[in-house]
Structure formats: structure tokens, C-alpha cells
């Protein structure tokens, strides 16, 4: 095709009033590319800002156990482990509760209860993080320190993860507040996944003589497992990056310890606590930014892993029957 034809073609389009369409396509493409570019720019800027720390510590940054601003030695282990431990705890506590809520709302609740309860659960997701933190400090922390943690120690005190003095502001408390915060997300998304299971699946199980619970387990939960898994990972994503409430509850101690009843620090809470410290080009700031990169990478890995899992489960034929 000759250039003149192309130009004439363009002209014809404009004459026909297709200018709006062309403009729209350009604009939306630009925005879409812009979002991808933004991610790249963020990564590059963080990499540049973290380069001092990367050059100084190399890979040993990831295995370093200390964070000492006096000696100017920085390592990521306390914070990566703090993030993983509190997030795992949040899932451990939050997932069973969320699934219970989702199953109740989708399978058991009468219509009169279902609608208002669904709204309430979703409203929980709208409570600002700092408000959860306040509630954590004034209600949860005293309850933890005086009742729950001593009680746990009474039963499971022989385990290394339950040793030490209960303070109420520690990794365990941070995990509990995170669990509460991810319950609305996981239960709302899981409920959607359960509602999407065709009625014919429930009937198939019931007609074999299944009880309501057996039908839920056999037909509904299995059918919806990809969606439920996606919901859990969404919750994990929120738990890993959650900052404000965790910062208020975790006790902010830059060390490594086995006990959940010791204070700790997540990547997010460390950054929130320390971003104002050190000079603008100090090694500490560079190390903080490197930790930010690590957090970003963790989120990325969680998301990619989740997507791979979900698509693998989907390929095996879920939802393909209906």
C-alpha cells in the first residue's frame, strides 16, 4: 500500500467522523502503556536509590541478621521473617474463619440474614487501617497480654513459639489484627466463588444421599477451589503489605526471635517507622529502599505463583462442565 493511500485512508476516516474513535484508541493505549511504564519506573528508581546498599552488602543483605544504624550494618532477615511469620499467622487464623463465613453466607443462611450480613462483612473491608490499629492498641493488646497469651502459654507454653513475657504488642498480636483485616476480603471473594457453583452440582451430591455439609464439601468447595485459592492469595497480598495496623501492634523490635510473643518488625512497619531517619543519601535510607524492593518482589512472586496455580487448576477442567 502506498503512503498516499494510507494518508487518504486516514483522511476518509476523519471525514467519516472516526476521529473520536482514533483519538479514543490512542488515549486508552497511552494510559495502558503508562501503567506498565510506571511499574518499570518505580522499579528502576528504587534500584538506583538502593544501589549504595546493594553495592555495600551484596547478597549478604538477604542473610544479614542485624539492623544497626550505629555500626551502619543492615540485614533483611528480621523483617522478611517478621513479614512471613505475621502473614502466615494471619492466614492460619483468618482462612478457616473466612471460609466459615463464606459457607454460611452462601450455603446455609436464610435470605433474610444473608443480605444484611453480606453487607456488614464487606463493610469491614472499608474500615481504615489506622482504626484497626487503634482498636488493636486499646482493646486487643490488653486482652492479648492479660487473657489470650497467658492462656495459650498455659496450654502450649512448652513450644518455643509461645515462650517469653506476654506483652500484647508482639508478632502474635500483629498476626491476629492482620487476620481480622483479611477476613472481609477472603470471605467476600470466596462467597462469590461459592455462589458461582451451579445448583446442579449441589443436587448431584444431595441425590447420592449427601447431607448438606457433605454436599458442600463434595460438590461446592471442590468446584470453587480455584476461586477460593485466589481469595486466599488476595488476603495474603493484603497481609504482606499491610502497614499501619501492624506498625501499631507489632512492638517494633529489630531483632530475630523464635517466639511469637516477642515483638518484631515487618518490612512495611520498619519502613514506616524509619523512613524519616538518616540523611537523604545515607546508607540506612538505601537499605530501607532495598527492603522496599524485596517487599515488592515478594508480592510479585505471590501473585505470579497464585495466577499459575489458579490457571493450572482451571485447565484441569473446573467450570468447564457447565
Amino acid at each position: 500500500m502506498q503512503i498516499s493511500e494510507v494518508v487518504r485512508g486516514r483522511f476518509r476516516n476523519i471525514r467519516r467522523g472516526a476521529l473520536g474513535d482514533t483519538l479514543f484508541q490512542w488515549l486508552t493505549s497511552l494510559v495502558a502503556i503508562g501503567v506498565v511504564a510506571l511499574l518499570g519506573v518505580i522499579a528502576v528508581v528504587l534500584l538506583i536509590a538502593a544501589s549504595a546498599s546493594i553495592q555495600t552488602f551484596g547478597p549478604s543483605f538477604l542473610t544479614g541478621m542485624t539492623w544497626d544504624s550505629v555500626a551502619d550494618v543492615y540485614g533483611a532477615v528480621p523483617f522478611v521473617s517478621g513479614t512471613l511469620v505475621t502473614s502466615a499467622l494471619a492466614l492460619l487464623i483468618g482462612v478457616p474463619i473466612s471460609l466459615g463465613v463464606a459457607i454460611f453466607l452462601s450455603e446455609l443462611a436464610p435470605a433474610k440474614v444473608r443480605v444484611p450480613l453480606t453487607y456488614v462483612v464487606e463493610l469491614l473491608a472499608a474500615v481504615p487501617s489506622v482504626v484497626y490499629g487503634l482498636w488493636g492498641i486499646f482493646v486487643l493488646a490488653p486482652a492479648m497480654a492479660n487473657v489470650i497469651e497467658p492462656g495459650l502459654q498455659g496450654v502450649l507454653g512448652f513450644l518455643p513459639i509461645f515462650q517469653g513475657t506476654p506483652r500484647g504488642a508482639d508478632k502474635f498480636a500483629a498476626g491476629v489484627i492482620l487476620a481480622i483485616m483479611i477476613i472481609p476480603t477472603i470471605s467476600a471473594v470466596s462467597r462469590e466463588a461459592l455462589r458461582a457453583v451451579p445448583q446442579s452440582q449441589r443436587e448431584a451430591a444431595l441425590s447420592l444421599g449427601a447431607t448438606r455439609w457433605e454436599s458442600t464439601r463434595l460438590a461446592v468447595l471442590r468446584y470453587a477451589r480455584a476461586g477460593i485459592f485466589g481469595a486466599i492469595v488476595l488476603g495474603l497480598g493484603r497481609a504482606v503489605g499491610e502497614t499501619m495496623a501492624v506498625t501499631m501492634m507489632i512492638g517494633n523490635w529489630n531483632g530475630v526471635s523464635l517466639s511469637l510473643l516477642d515483638p518484631g518488625q515487618t518490612i512495611a512497619s520498619l519502613i514506616a517507622n524509619n523512613f524519616g531517619e538518616g540523611g537523604p543519601v545515607s546508607l540506612q535510607k538505601s537499605a530501607l529502599i532495598e527492603l522496599g524492593l524485596v517487599l515488592m518482589l515478594m508480592s510479585l512472586v505471590i501473585n505470579v505463583f497464585a495466577r499459575l496455580m489458579v490457571s493450572r487448576v482451571l485447565r484441569r477442567g473446573e467450570g468447564g462442565a457447565e
Binding site: S200, A204, G317
Partner: peptide, 20 residues
């Protein structure tokens, strides 16, 4: 539950368990 174990049913639309 015991009635349904003695009286089986096949539905209009085939509904095998797709995850199994």
C-alpha cells in the same frame, strides 16, 4: 438422606463433578 440413597436420580443436564 437415607431416602435418597435408596432412590437415585439422574438429572436433565449431565452434572458430573468436574474436579473429580
Amino acid at each position: 438422606v437415607s431416602v435418597r440413597r435408596r432412590i437415585g436420580m439422574v438429572f436433565q443436564k449431565a452434572n458430573p463433578f468436574p474436579t473429580m
